[in-house]
Design a protein around this nucleic acid. Structure first.
Lengths: 83, 83
DNA sequence: ACTCCATATGACCTCTGGATCATAAATTGT
DNA sequence: ACAATTTATGATCCAGAGGTCATATGGAGT
C-alpha cells in the first residue's frame, strides 16, 4: 500500500495501518523504535507537529520508506491512499 | 526525480534540489511557504529534527508530495536518489 | 460483570525548533 | 575588485513535542 501524506492525520493513518499489518501493539513498536507508546498514540491520531526524527524512527522500525517526488500531474494511478 | 528520504540530510537535499529546479531563492520560498528563510537554510543543510508541519508547508509550496510505502525489497529501480 | 491487555489522556519538566532581528559569509554579476 | 544578492550563523524568546509516570478509558475474551 502506498500512502500519500499531506498532513499529520494522513501520517497517523499510515503508521497505524503499517503497525497493524505487522501485528504490533503500540508498546511493542515503542520498544523497537525508541519512541514512547504515549507518543505513538498521539502521532497515530494525527495530533500536531511531530518531529521528523521521531517519524524516521517509527518508519525505520516499521520497515517503511518515505519518498519525496514532484506532485503527480493528475495521474492518480489508483494506488494511493489519501485520508 | 524521486528522493528516498531516511534522514534530515536526505530531506534537505530534496528540498534544495526542488527549490533550485524552480529557480527560487530561499527568501522567495520563505514568503510563499510561510517558513522563515533562516529556517529553510537550516533544513536544507539537514540540521536536526524539523517539525512535520514545517515540512508539509515547504512540500506544498514546492509542489512536491510525500509518500509512505513498504520498504522496497531490493528493487532499486534506479530512480532513487539517496544521500 | 470481571479480568487483562491496549490505547488514550493528563500533568510535569526539559529541551529544542521556529519566529524574529542582526549580521556574517558566500555567491553571483559586472 | 566591487556591489548586490543569497545563504548561513548567532542570539533571544516562546510554544510545543516528547520523555516519564500515573491513570483512565476501551476492547476482547471468558
Amino acid at each position: 500500500m502506498k500512502h500519500l501524506v499531506r498532513t499529520s492525520k494522513n501520517l497517523g493513518h499510515a503508521i497505524r495501518q503499517a503497525r497493524k499489518a505487522k501485528n504490533l501493539t503500540q508498546k511493542e513498536l515503542a520498544s523497537m523504535s525508541g519512541v514512547w507508546q504515549e507518543t505513538i498514540s498521539k502521532i497515530e491520531n494525527g495530533s500536531g507537529g511531530t518531529k521528523l526524527e521521531t517519524l524516521f524512527d517509527l518508519i525505520a522500525a516499521l520497515d517503511l520508506e518515505i519518498t519525496v517526488t514532484e506532485r503527480s500531474k493528475g495521474t492518480s494511478d489508483g494506488l494511493e491512499d489519501i485520508f
